[in-house]
Structures are given as structure tokens and as C-alpha cells.
Computed example of a mutant assay.
Amino acid sequence: MDDKHKQLPDLFDKSFRDIVKAFDSFFDESIKHVHDFFQQTTIPVEVFETDRDVTVEAYLPNVSREQIRIDRSGNQLRIRVDERQLREVKNEEAHYYHRSHSLSQRERVVTLPFAVAETASSASFKGGVLTIVFPKHNSTIKVIDVDDQ
């Protein structure tokens, strides 16, 4: 029986294990990048209401104020974050130079639950939290009576 094992190639020798480890590493890293991509596309948001206003809080860690853009149309609020990254690698000894530039955008559209005033909204950004406050629209609610027929 020992003679048969010596005749068959050893499928689990060091070189084969190295190849398997390389494949595992490749797929592990790829999955991490896919996971990171999907995690970054969402902006967590909470909406709070009081008697006088509607407050939207967006959680934007590792973002600067200059990267944020806020737009509103009707009762829709859009929060957009533009992220630019410039990467440069130089190695004089190896005569190697690599430069890459990437741009990514994340955005979140929030439907505001109540009519809000067209003006007098305010926004602040502190500690990675964007806070937008809209005063409620002061329109009166008209009640319509239903007649019996």
C-alpha cells in the first residue's frame, strides 16, 4: 500500500497549498471590498417630529462639511456626499510611479412626513452628524364633513 502512495502525486504538497492560500486570499479580499462598497452607499438617517418642526439627522462619519450637498424639492430631501481620493505611490529606486484618482458619491433621499415651510430651514454639521431642521408649514387643516344622504 505504501508503494501506491509513492506513485501518486501528492496533491497537498507545499506548492499546491500555496496556490490554494492565494485563491482564498484573493476571494477573501474581494468579498471585503464588495462588503465595504455596499456599506458605504447607504447614509443612515433618522427623522424626528415635534410640534413646531421636523428634524432630519444623517450620520456621516469621516466626512467633511465641504463634501456635503443638500437639496430639497417639495417634500423630498436629498443628501449627497462627494468623496474624492487621490493616491500617489513613488519608488525612486525601482523607477516606479503610480497615481490614481477616484470619485464616489453616496446619496439618500428622504421623504419628509409633513409639509414644511419653504424657507427658514437650518443645517448644522458636528461630530459626523448632519442635522437639518425644517419648521412645519403653518397651513390650517380643513376638515370636510361627510353628509348623510
Rank of each mutant, 00 (worst) to 15 (best):
D2F: 13
D3H: 08
K4M: 10
K6T: 07
K6E: 15
D10Y: 01
D10H: 08
D10A: 07
L11W: 05
D13P: 00
F16N: 06
F16M: 09
R17F: 01
F23E: 11
S25V: 00
F26C: 04
V34M: 12
V34Y: 11
V34E: 13
H35D: 14
F37L: 12
Q39F: 08
Q39N: 15
I43R: 09
I43S: 08
E49D: 12
T50A: 05
D51G: 13
D53M: 11
V54G: 05
T55Y: 03
T55S: 03
V56M: 06
V56E: 03
Y59G: 04
Y59T: 14
Y59S: 12
P61V: 05
P61T: 03
N62D: 10
V63D: 02
V63G: 01
S64K: 14
I68Y: 00
I68M: 00
R69I: 05
I70V: 15
I70K: 01
I70D: 00
I70P: 00
D71W: 01
D71H: 03
R72H: 02
Q76Y: 11
Q76T: 12
L77K: 07
R78V: 13
R78E: 04
R78N: 08
R78G: 01
R78I: 10
R80E: 05
V81N: 02
D82F: 02
D82W: 00
E83V: 11
E83S: 13
E92V: 05
E92M: 10
E92F: 03
E92Q: 10
E93W: 05
A94D: 03
H95G: 08
H95T: 06
H95M: 09
Y96A: 02
Y97V: 08
Y97G: 04
R99K: 15
S102H: 04
L103C: 07
S104N: 13
S104D: 07
E107I: 02
R108Q: 15
V110L: 07
T111N: 13
T111Y: 01
F114N: 09
A115F: 08
V116E: 02
V116P: 05
E118S: 13
A120N: 15
A120K: 13
A123W: 01
A123M: 13
S124T: 11
S124M: 03
S124W: 01
F125I: 12
K126W: 00
G128F: 13
G128N: 15
V129D: 04
T131N: 12
P135D: 00
H137T: 02
H137R: 12
N138G: 06
N138P: 11
S139E: 09
T140C: 05
K142D: 06
K142G: 01
V143S: 07
D147W: 07
Q149F: 10
Q149I: 11
